[in-house]
């Protein structure tokens, strides 16, 4: 395989990771000034900032790889819905605090397994971004785990809300552990990560947290997929409309 071809593959892979981070970070910013109390409002902004920062690192690297003068903002603001490659779980609406907590828990556990693997990537930049990300993720996971315990084993209402959130989100977790051809190829080359190998440990960790929180793991009969091929839920279009309108209404301006 030629170096150029491989660059294209890494660019595509990096954009997927960037989209995951940006879309989740954007969703988290929707909590700012809506948090259940002030300290928690601040903590959620922190997590959002980490994800936006991570997105910028990935997009910055993608811009470098594209080598045609593209910037991070071109990727974030000038691509359409069908071109975004984030996993669906990231684009789902903010929901209530239980919903956001469960989404964070699922993603935090995933990242706590994924990023250490990406740190071993042959691609030094991806490895470096992962090394920075894992520090943040460990802190995120501590938070989402603590909240899952508190809310799961808190009041009858909080328990009900948590179980409902788990049931509504479970179907979107399957695509975290899939590989398409490109991802398989990069995993083989030790650039990317073999996500399929992460599921067993993810399940074990999530199940143990849920059971400690007196919550139940749903069965696997409901599966929704499509993020990596640009086959999105209706939520993403609205998110992008809002996020991109100003940038697009003043083309080629500096901000």
């Amino acid at each position: 395989m030629s170096v150029v071809l491989n660059n294209t593959a890494i660019l595509e892979y990096t954009l997927r990771l960037a989209d995951d981070s940006l879309i989740l970070g954007h969703r988290l910013t929707e909590w700012t000034s809506h948090g259940p109390f002030l300290e928690e409002d601040i903590a959620m902004s922190n997590v959002a900032l980490d994800y936006i920062g991570r997105a910028r690192m990935y997009y910055g690297y993608a811009a470098e790889l594209s080598g045609d003068g593209k910037t991070e903002d071109d990727f974030a603001f000038l691509r359409d819905e069908r071109e975004f490659r984030n996993l669906l779980i990231n684009e789902l609406p903010r929901g209530d605090f239980a919903y956001s907590t469960v989404r964070q828990l699922f993603i935090d556990v995933f990242n706590s397994l994924y990023l250490p693997k990406l740190m071993q990537s042959n691609d030094e930049t991806l490895a470096a971004i992962a090394a920075k990300g894992i520090k943040e993720t460990r802190y995120h996971l501590r938070r989402s785990r603590d909240w899952t315990l508190r809310l799961g084993d808190g009041t009858a209402e909080s328990h009900k809300r948590m179980q409902k959130a788990i049931d509504s989100l479970w179907g979107y977790t399957h695509e975290l552990f899939e590989l398409d051809e490109l991802e398989q190829q990069l995993a083989d080359q030790r650039v990317g990560v073999d996500n399929t190998a992460l599921r067993a440990e993810w399940l074990a960790t999530v199940e143990s947290i849920l059971s400690e929180a007196t919550l139940t793991r749903p069965n696997d009969d409901w599966v929704v997929k499509g993020g990596r091929t640009g086959y999105h839920t209706e939520n993403l279009g609205h998110l992008l409309t809002e996020m991109q309108f100003l940038h697009r209404s003043n083309p080629s301006c500096e901000w």
């Binding site: 910013t29 936006i52 910028r56 309108f245 940038h247 301006c253 901000w255």
Partner: peptide, 15 residues
């Protein structure tokens, strides 16, 4: 926050 015109501005505003 959800409409900031660049990623840098979005991060700066959020912080």
């Amino acid at each position: 926050l959800t409409r900031a015109p660049s990623l840098r501005r979005k991060a700066v505003l959020l912080s």
